[in-house]
Design a protein around this nucleic acid. Structure first.
Lengths: 212, 212
DNA sequence: CCACGTTTTCGACCAATAGGCGAAAACCCC
DNA sequence: GGGGTTTTCGCCTATTGGTCGAAAACGTGG
């Protein structure tokens, strides 16, 4: 989500939403406030620090240090945004202001990486979803095709999928109705990493380098 | 590595090395400068941003925002440090100033996580090392025992170990002399992550959720 | 100098996970 | 009801990680 700068420097170029840190808030509160106040985005399913961008000349004029965040919104919510703000496809980004293009690059890389070893994928989907929808999100974020069969099996083995019992109506071209699932938080927060190196006694025999 | 604060606030408590960001440097240059100037640590095998700590009351007095880093030094180098500075075992840390204890906690967590899906383990070891040494580093960083057999096989399969041909002399209690290895950087930087989700066409059939 | 303990190394075997494929199920439209 | 479409499920294979035990290579003490 980008908004078009009205003033110099870099007028008419697109930039990431953000703003100045107040003295009475931390950086996460700040970015949540900016998103809520300026573009009315409040239903963030995931927020995490990305990195600090601090090159002395990243912005013309006085030095500005930015703490960049990766924020995700479920694909079913479509927040009202002001007229100077627009959602863009990450594959077709316009010219961006300052170093914001590299920030987006870092965010994409981080999202792609974390999809494999965390539960972050669920932050992209609505509370109830079909495997096909989830696969489409994974494919979009990763940039290559993902098999629904495998995705379902892998996530099921990790005890992350819980069938709701309901089904989604098939599309206009027919097809078997898809089963609906929800994210099964068995004591695991959405953003927790899997135990890639299993701690002693946990139930993940394969995957990692450990020998408890 | 901590140094003991001489002045209030939090006098006599231990704190992480650091200092103020100058206007002509970015945060990584800054932390490298601080480490070089103040404690003469220059041979960092790995430096990465950890997180921004920005709670308004994290430091008494005027607001201070800190960008915390994780920095690693190979286990064979032992830099000269000033008299008020000391290396501490992470399992026996003294009372620390400000929020530095939580920073260390985050660093430990990050290191432990990244050991499994990156090559970061090599940043802990000297250029030539035995599997036992590497295992000890892994065990220390992870907090539980790691099998040398497994470690060698896993890293070998990932093409990260390259035998130097030499051997290390056995210890005072005898034993077969250990073979020496070096990190085999086949175009891969020490800190690069493994391809946990393999991009299409790469040679990593198992591990991950993808189906290219 | 030869048995003994020690440490490392290697091979064999097992368990668990991921990927591929095809068939069956359940739906639409004509 | 037949053909096309989409989802789901079950087999099979490949690769990885974990365990175990034996063999190799060393120092030491009798």
């Amino acid at each position: 989500m980008l908004w078009e700068r009205a003033r110099e420097p870099h007028a008419h170029r697109w930039s990431l939403p953000g703003g100045e840190l107040r003295v009475d808030e931390d950086v996460e509160s700040s970015i949540r406030r900016q998103l809520a106040e300026k573009v009315d985005v409040r239903q963030l399913s995931h927020v995490e620090q990305l990195a600090v961008f601090s090159a002395p000349d990243r912005v013309p004029g006085p030095r500005v240090v930015a703490t960049a965040f990766l924020g995700l919104v479920p694909s079913d919510v479509d927040p009202e945004v002001p007229s100077d703000t627009m959602w863009h496809c990450v594959d077709e980004l316009p010219a961006m202001a300052f170093d914001h293009a590299s920030i987006v690059g870092r965010a994409r890389h981080r999202l792609g990486s974390k999809l494999s070893y965390t539960n972050l994928g669920f932050a992209l989907a609505p509370p109830e979803f079909t495997i096909s929808l989830l696969r489409d999100h994974y494919s979009a974020a990763l940039g290559y095709r993902v098999s629904a069969t495998n995705l379902q099996r892998v996530l099921s083995r990790r005890l992350l999928l819980e069938p709701t019992g309901g089904t989604a109506p098939p599309g206009p071209s027919g097809g078997r109705p898809a089963a609906l699932f929800r994210f099964s938080a068995k004591g695991i927060k959405v953003t927790d990493p899997f135990a890639v190196l299993r701690p002693p006694g946990s139930g993940r025999p394969a995957g990692g380098v450990a020998t408890p």
